[in-house]
Design a protein around this nucleic acid. Sequence first.
DNA 1: CGGATTGTGTACTCCCCGGTACAATGAACG
DNA 2: CGTTCATTGTACCGGGGAGTACACAATCCG
Lengths: 202, 202
Amino acid sequence: MADDTGRVGRPREFDLDEALTAALQVFWAKGYEGASLADLTGAMGITKTSMYAAFGNKEELFRKVVALYTEGPASYGHRAMEESTAREVAEALLKGAARATTQIESPHGCLGVQGALTTSDSGSPARDLLVDWRNDGGSRLEERFQRAHTEGDLPAGEDPRRLATYIMTVAYGIAVQAATGRSEGELRGVADTALRAVDWTD
Amino acid sequence: MADDTGRVGRPREFDLDEALTAALQVFWAKGYEGASLADLTGAMGITKTSMYAAFGNKEELFRKVVALYTEGPASYGHRAMEESTAREVAEALLKGAARATTQIESPHGCLGVQGALTTSDSGSPARDLLVDWRNDGGSRLEERFQRAHTEGDLPAGEDPRRLATYIMTVAYGIAVQAATGRSEGELRGVADTALRAVDWTD
DNA sequence: CGGATTGTGTACTCCCCGGTACAATGAACG
DNA sequence: CGTTCATTGTACCGGGGAGTACACAATCCG
């Protein structure tokens, strides 16, 4: 991905991905507004000047961190959609959420939820970004359940949109519970209970 | 409640409860750290000096606001516990959450969730307060389901603690969905779906 | 070698944050 | 009336927030 060919000028002394990963931990733990530039650059091991040169500003850094989060710790979401039955999709999503939000080496909870649920006025772009992020996740699950519906993979009378909203709601709830201190085991139990709400055909 | 008898000195020119109610709206919408003293006192219609004289400081104001929230907009929680069956308790709780988090005259979502899910270091007392608030809610529901269990009001093999954690998880998820823009109708649908996870005996 | 170009470190800017000092105010009480 | 005392408004405080100016360092290219 990194292409250094033909680059002129002084070379960057840090790795972009490593810096983003460090910033992710901070935003994840403290939220967009709770993370100060001093917190961020301290964890990234670079100065404010280098951060601004490489990423633009705090908001742009957050956007890149959210993208990294989506492809990294939250990638179970994409993978869940590829399961072969609606039930397996739902289970992979909820179990993945239980796991990803309780890892010991990362902050508990979900960046997409606790990163900017509420903000001051100046933080509204970040808040809007995560609103879109959550809505996109819901839409993708709805589309997956729509497909399951046409494939006869959903019980009769089960509405794909309503079911997707329900599963996403449980996933968000799991994120809040993780931030509150619940263990992966407890949250896997929640996932199992939640899955009983549907008479999956398989 | 207010006892002005024998009070000496210049009388307060504003109503404590009205001021707290105004502060509640601000904390609810912007979170503990997202709400500045200028935001708060502006909405309360008083000066910073009056706020400090009446409530102590920002953190103490938040504690009083959370108490008011518990007795006011979140009082459906207490009321739900008094329903006569476990199923009715769960339904009242989830429908109450769907309603309270989507009122047009108040911010969407739940103060207990979005008030301080993540904070900077200086906001950790507020964050801890809401962690306790959420844990207390879970404990009360668990106790209610424990009672239901001894009364034979829960299906055999249904664990009160696990069930309480599940219901609370859905409630928190509803709060996140409300903050994301979902309507009361959609969230009532979520509540109905969630309730199907248990074979209530009634 | 000598630009041109890009990244780095220091030292700053401006602004808003939570919190407070202090004098003026207005009611109760003798 | 004058004393007492909690409340009020103004004007301020130190600190930390995001963001930047500028000189210097390190590489590429000719």
